[in-house]
Nucleic acid binder design. Structure first.
Lengths: 367, 367
DNA sequence: AAACTCCCCGGAAACGTTTACAGCTATCGG
DNA sequence: CCGATAGCTGTAAACGTTTCCGGGGAGTTT
């Protein structure tokens, strides 16, 4: 009398003890059968039966405590409403799923405390690894990354000496590609609608823009630079402010959401795109192809970066002793109607790309 | 000699035992201090010091095993690229965060086995509760929902008698609102671009469309109905097929992604929106406001549904004995430029809404 | 000064699982 | 016919944490 251990926990859910007792075997045997390793035919039958009768479902937490793994990978991004992260997520998900794990996504909403808290919390073993793509990096942040208990891979720029697996692109060069293209097609008064300068991508793109103009010997006109958030509404508002005081013949936008906002502002202000103003976005997301006219955009290889980050993470999970690695994905420009060279045709409002095809990804010319 | 328990696990991470030994106290005292309950000033100092020295970070899995809760809530949606889910997620995240928990998102990609597997896996205690928004519901699925070990709330239509907390809308009525509006503004050849009919929303919207036409005494023309996926590219392709064989004066689309695809197809085919063809989407996402002209859309109260679902879930987590509840959020129509009544003006291509404001959400007329 | 209260501390159990180990039975080969 | 072997089984330890409980010391009250 007086069993050593309660068989039915307070919430009534059966445990392996319940099953074992019901089947008349030890918990070890029950566990073995439930995991499909060993057991005589008779035992297997009894345990299976008992498990089915009580509706046994294993407690994943307990299992993880024992096995030291959860089979979950987390992805933390700033804004899940930004299609670039959706593309990245899809690429990661494919890799993660092929390793038999599952991907969970967390939106930090740009609140940096939120992201640090997530790191501190989730990384404490709830997941086997994390991929994070921070847009602001503080020292505190970096510290949390470095001594995370689980492997972490960062997508995005990071201090040069941080001992963290890292996949990046060169968005300075990306902006340069856009400027080169616009200059080559005759534009001279090139505006720039950027995201916040205190973010890593915002700062890099600003530097890239200034450097590119200088390289072409075009003087910098502060009136042609505007800053907002990396979002649609902010991009539109920023472009309205810019148009109220200057007359650009081209606009480079720091991402596609901003570019869509800019397109809206331009059309509402009566400018024709690309005849009056050429427009180039950045990230080359599906959104760029959804617009009319379709937007030129600088691809930063987001899907590729996601894929590589996932691979790095899986490798590190397999072998924690690997040295920190860094990979780089080059940007490339995809030219579409929004920045097509304006030809003699007076009003080719439907763009020069001809009738849209059903394979949008095949449209555009990679430069 | 021969300690009862290893202090340093193989992976070298310190545990509460490490800290306790170093501080010269019992693990019970160490745990108490680390949780901020009790402890003499001296003990507190010693433990804090020891913890800092070894870089102790608690193992969340072990803690959860003991406390029977993880503080995590999962949201499973079909397609995270659909902005409607982004809006829903934001609303849920706000409620969840205010309860001190964290939200994790999982994209099922519409693969139903994926969703069932997720339920079976995540729900086994990795999270304290789940919100799922399935678009296809099978019996197997339903069974997995019903006997989930953790509370589940479903957003979307569900069998009438399923004993599961449920927040729904009336998308049949939503389609009716769109049709009523179009008929009232003089449209008669109204087309419909739907998602797959074997999905719950697809079927409901199809039924709603047919019923609405019948109510207005408009005969059904099968040529004006087309079906694709609930996505941009599919919506565009479906609209191209429809335009190749029929000449609608209005289009109702089963969601905003499809509507954007339709807009693209219409413009590419040389139709003016709204003069030649009026366009109404569904879900009233940010995407509808990002288009030019801005799209009319039927709001299905996604943010509100998300908010309510999260509240239901938190209540159920607090009290598992509650009876299953069902809530309903009414649809409403938001009229914007894409379906504005065509007035005597010959080519008001910029729409009738006047210059865009910086508060897009204040635009449009709710009907 | 005795009794009582309060607080702090350490031992041990508990959360639910997997698994090393050892003992047992049955089978097989010599 | 007996010893070796293989396969199965049960006991118990382990994963890392929280918490119940009882013992003990210090301070307060009568």
């Amino acid at each position: 009398m007086g069993r050593k251990r309660l068989q039915e926990p307070a919430d009534g859910r059966p445990t392996v003890h319940t099953v074992a007792a019901r089947a008349g075997v030890s918990i070890a045997s029950a566990s073995r059968v439930l995991n499909g390793v060993g057991g005589s035919p008779e035992t297997i039958r009894k345990v299976r039966e008992a498990a089915a009768e009580v509706g046994y479902v294993p407690n994943a937490i307990a299992r993880s405590l024992q096995s030291q793994r959860t089979g979950l990978i987390a992805l933390a991004v700033e804004d899940i409403g930004n299609p670039v992260y959706v593309e990245m997520m899809r690429a990661i998900e494919a890799v993660v799923a092929s390793s038999g794990r599952q991907l969970l996504v967390h939106a930090t909403g740009g609140r940096i405390d939120n992201e640090t808290a997530l790191l501190r919390r989730l990384a404490n073993r709830y997941v086997d690894g994390m991929i994070v793509s921070p847009i602001r990096v503080t020292d505190d942040h970096l510290a949390a990354l470095v001594d995370s208990p689980v492997p972490v891979v960062v997508v995005g720029q990071l201090g040069a000496d941080a001992p963290i697996d890292n996949v990046r692109t060169d968005s300075r060069h990306g902006v340069a590609l856009a400027v080169d293209h616009l200059v080559a097609t005759g534009r001279r008064r090139i505006g720039f609608v950027n995201g916040p300068l205190d973010t890593v991508p915002g700062a890099a793109r600003d530097a890239g823009f200034r450097a590119a103009l200088a390289r072409h010997g075009i003087g910098l006109d502060a009136e042609l630079i505007e800053v907002g958030d990396f979002q649609y509404a902010a991009g539109r508002a920023a472009t309205e402010r810019l148009l109220a005081r200057a007359e650009p013949d081209a606009l480079v936008c720091a991402n596609d959401l901003i570019a869509v906002g800019a397109l809206h502002a331009l059309l509402a202000a009566g400018r024709r795109v690309p005849q009056d103003v050429a427009l180039v976005g950045m990230d080359d997301t599906e959104l760029a192809r959804m617009m009319f006219p379709q937007l030129s955009s600088v691809s930063l290889g987001s899907a590729e970066r996601g894929r590589r980050a996932a691979e790095l993470l899986l490798q590190r999970i397999a072998d924690a002793a690997l040295p920190p690695r860094r990979e780089q994905v080059p940007p490339s420009l995809v030219v579409r109607a929004s920045s097509a060279a304006t030809l003699p045709v007076p009003r080719p409002a439907t763009g020069t790309a001809g009738p849209p095809t059903t394979h949008p990804s095949s449209e555009g010319v990679t430069a």
